[in-house]
Design a protein around this nucleic acid. Structure first.
Length: 522
DNA sequence: CTAGGGTTAG
C-alpha cells in the first residue's frame, strides 16, 4: 500500500501544472496524515520551486513543516540559491539549519551556501564550518570554496591557498582560479594558470578570453579565440559574445563578420546575448545597417538590446535615430523601463547632435519619470552637452549642484568645451582641478600647460614642464584603429613615423580648413 | 541534490 501511495503521489505530482493541483495533492496527503512525511514534503517543495517556480509557496511548505530534515533544508536552500536576490535568505536558512539539533549539513549544501556569501568574512566562517563537518576533502566543495573566495573582495589570496592545497585539481577548479585572477585584472596570472592546466574545455577557454576582453586586452582575447579554434575547441555562444566584444573595441569588422557567419552556419541559437553582441560589434565598427538588421531580428529584445542599439546611433552622432529607438523602447513597441545606461546613451546622442534642450529634458526625465538618481556618468554627459554648446554658466551651476565630487570626466568635459569656445579662463580652472585629482597623470599636466600657453603665461608653462619632467610623468599617446580593405590601421597621436604622414595631414587640412595636430597611421 | 564561462556605459 505504501508503495502504491508513493507511485500515486509522484504520478499526480508529475501531472501538476498549476498551484491549485499541488494544493489538492497536499490536501489529499493531509487527510491521510502524510502531510509532514519528509519524503512527500520534499517532493512537493522541489516541484513547487523548480517546476512551478513558485518560491513563496515553496517557502510556505518548508515553513509549515514542524521538523524539517536535511533534505528539506537542501531543497529550500537550492531554490533560493538560484536567484541572487534571495542569497541573504540562503545564509539565514543555513544558520537556522546549523542551530537545529536534528539537521546536519551535507556536502551538497555548502556550494549553495558559498555562492550566497557577500564578503570574505562569510566565506571564512563557512570555510571553518566545512572543516568542522569534515567535508573539506570533497573536490566539489573545495572548488566551490575557491570560486567563492575569488568572487568576494580581497579573497583571492585565500582562493589561491585553497586551490594550492587541493588534493585533486580538475578542469573546473583550474577554471575557477583563471577567472578569479581575471576578475581582479591580473590577466598575466590568469594566463599562467591557464597554461598550467592539464586539460582545457570550452568554459576554461571562455574564462580566459572573457578575462582578457573584460580587462581591455582585446587583441590578446582575439588571439586566444583564434588559438581556441586552431586547437579544435568549438566556441559556443559565450565565446562568441566575448570575441565580438573584442572585435567591436578594436574595429575588426572582418573578423566580426566571420563570427556572424560562423554563428549562422553552425546553428547557434541567436539568443539575446549573441544578438546584442553582434549589434554592438556592427555598431562600433560603423556598420549601422547591419546593427539595425540584427537588432530587428531579435525576437526577445531585452534592456541590453535596446541600450546597445541606442548606443550605436549615439556613437555615430545619429541622434534622431537614437531618440526614435528610445521612443519605441518605452512605447508600445518595447514596453521597457529604461535604466541608467539607456540615459547615458541618450545624453550622448543629444550631445553629438547638439540637442541641448532635448538632452536637458532627458536628464530631468530620468529622475522624475523613472526614479533613476543621476550618477557621475550622467553628470559627465550633461557637462559635455552644455560645454560643447558653450553654455558655461549652466554647466558650472550643474557642477556646483552635484551631490558627489566631480571626477576627471566632468572636469575633462568642461575643459574640452572651453577649448572649443576659447574660454581660457575657465579652462585654467578645469585643468587645475584635473591636475589636483590626478597629479601624476602627465596628460593633465600637458593640458594645463597648453592652457597657460593660450593665456600667454610662459613662465607657468616652463614651471609646469619642469615639474612634469622631474616627476617623470609622461602621457601615453592616444591611439585608435580602423579596418580598411582587410587591413587594420593603427593611429597614434602626434606620431609622424608613417610614410604617408604628409598625405594624411593634407587630407585633414582639406577637411578642416586648417592643420590639425592629429593622427598618423603606423 | 553540489563546483567553472557571457553583451551595453562618459
Amino acid at each position: 500500500m505504501k508503495r502504491n501511495l508513493n507511485e500515486h503521489v509522484l504520478e499526480t505530482l508529475s501531472k501538476c501544472n498549476h498551484l491549485n493541483h499541488l494544493k489538492q495533492l497536499q490536501g489529499y496527503l493531509t487527510t491521510l496524515g502524510h502531510a509532514h512525511t519528509h519524503f512527500y514534503a520534499f517532493k512537493l517543495l522541489r516541484f513547487c520551486a523548480l517546476t512551478l517556480s513558485n518560491l513563496s509557496y515553496a517557502h510556505l511548505i518548508f515553513h509549515h513543516h514542524p521538523s524539517p530534515n536535511t533534505h528539506l533544508f537542501t531543497a529550500i536552500i537550492t531554490a533560493y540559491a538560484a536567484h541572487p536576490a534571495n542569497h541573504p535568505s540562503v545564509l539565514i536558512l543555513f544558520r537556522h539549519m546549523l542551530r537545529s539539533q536534528s539537521t546536519r549539513p551535507n556536502q551538497f549544501i555548502f556550494p549553495h551556501a558559498l555562492k550566497a556569501c557577500p564578503d570574505s568574512c562569510a566565506v571564512d566562517s563557512l570555510h571553518a564550518q566545512i572543516v568542522k563537518s569534515g567535508f573539506l576533502h570533497y573536490p566539489v566543495v573545495q572548488t566551490a570554496l575557491v570560486d567563492s573566495y575569488s568572487k568576494v573582495s580581497g579573497g583571492l589570496r585565500n582562493a589561491k591557498k585553497v586551490f594550492d592545497e587541493m588534493s585533486e585539481r580538475n578542469v573546473v577548479s583550474f577554471t575557477a582560479m583563471v577567472s578569479g585572477f581575471a576578475r581582479v585584472g591580473d590577466v598575466e596570472s590568469a594566463v599562467r594558470v591557464f597554461d598550467e592546466m592539464p586539460e582545457r574545455d570550452v568554459p576554461s577557454w571562455n574564462a580566459l578570453i572573457a578575462g582578457c576582453t573584460q580587462n581591455g586586452a582585446f587583441s590578446q582575447g582575439i588571439e586566444l579565440f583564434r588559438r581556441m579554434i586552431w586547437e579544435c575547441n568549438r566556441p559556443n555562444g559565450v565565446t562568441v559574445v566575448c570575441a565580438l566584444s573584442a572585435c567591436g573595441h578594436t574595429g575588426m569588422l572582418q573578423l566580426g563578420r566571420w563570427i556572424h557567419g560562423y554563428v549562422s552556419k553552425n546553428g547557434f541559437v541567436l539568443d539575446s546575448f549573441v544578438s546584442n553582441a553582434l549589434v554592438d560589434m556592427y555598431g562600433k565598427c560603423g556598420s549601422l545597417g547591419n546593427a539595425r538588421k540584427v537588432f530587428g531580428m531579435n525576437p526577445e529584445k531585452g534592456l541590453t538590446s535596446w541600450n546597445s542599439m541606442i548606443n550605436c546611433f549615439a556613437l555615430h552622432g545619429q541622434s534622431d535615430s537614437a531618440i526614435a529607438v528610445f521612443e519605441q523602447m518605452v512605447g508600445w513597441g518595447g514596453g521597457m523601463r529604461p535604466d541608467e545606461i539607456t540615459f547615458i546613451g541618450l545624453l550622448n546622442a543629444c550631445t553629438h547632435g547638439g540637442l541641448v534642450e532635448q538632452g536637458y529634458r532627458y536628464f530631468e526625465m530620468m529622475g522624475q519619470e523613472y526614479g533613476i538618481e543621476p550618477r557621475i556618468e550622467h553628470y559627465g554627459c550633461l557637462i559635455d552637452l552644455l560645454g560643447r554648446a558653450g553654455r558655461f554658466d549652466e554647466a558650472l551651476e550643474v557642477v556646483n549642484g552635484m551631490s558627489m565630487e566631480p571626477d576627471e570626466v566632468v572636469w575633462g568635459s568642461l575643459l574640452n568645451g572651453c577649448k572649443v569656445h576659447g574660454r581660457s579662463d575657465l579652462a585654467e580652472f578645469a585643468a587645475k582641478k584635473l591636475v589636483e585629482i590626478d597629479p601624476h597623470n602627465g596628460g593633465y599636466g600637458i593640458m594645463l600647460a597648453n592652457v597657460y600657453g593660450e593665456l600667454g603665461q610662459w613662465d607657468e608653462v616652463r614651471n609646469l614642464w619642469r615639474t612634469l619632467k622631474q616627476q617623470k610623468s609622461y602621457k601615453i599617446p592616444g591611439c585608435s584603429w580602423i579596418e580598411v580593405d582587410d587591413q587594420v590601421h593603427q593611429f597614434y597621436s602626434l606620431d609622424k613615423s608613417n610614410p604617408k604622414t604628409e598625405e594624411l595631414y593634407g587630407v585633414l587640412e582639406s577637411l578642416f580648413g586648417f592643420r590639425n595636430e592629429v593622427i598618423v597611421d603606423l
